[in-house]
Amino acid sequence: MTSSNCGVTTLRLDSQTERASVHLLPCEIEYDGAAEVSQFFTATIKDRKHEKTVSFRGRGLKGQEVICPQGYSGLVLREVNKPGSDQEDRNVKVSSVFQKFTYWNLETLPNSDDGIVMAMAWPDLADAVSVLHFLQ
C-alpha cells in the first residue's frame, strides 16, 4: 500500500500531438490497436437531418456529436516507456487532442438522458463544488 501510493505519473507536455476523430461506441470491442476506422466506419456514416446513422457489425447505430465544455479539451494520453515494476515512476504523453467526439447509441436516438451527455455536465458543476474560489 505504502509503496504503491508513492508512484507518480508524469504527464509530459513536450510531445507532438495530432487531432484525431473520436467515436464512443455502444459496445465493448475486445481489442486495442490499429483498425481501418476511416475505410469501414467513417466512410459509411450517413448524416441526414441532424441524425447520424451508421452500422457496426450489422447493428444499427444512431449518433450525436458532443463538444467539450468551454475551457476544456479532449486529450488522449498514452503511456510511454512503461516501467518494469510498479515501484517506478510512470510517464504519459498527450498523443492526440480533440474538441468534439461522436457518441453512438445502439438503435435508440441520442438524447439528454444518455449517460455520457449527463456526465459532460460535470466540469461545469465541479467549478462550483470543488474549485478554489477566493471568498471576499
Partner: peptide, 8 residues
C-alpha cells in the same frame, strides 16, 4: 469502446 483516429 473508443475509435480514436485509425485505432480501437
Amino acid at each position: 469502446s473508443w475509435f480514436i483516429g485509425q485505432t480501437v
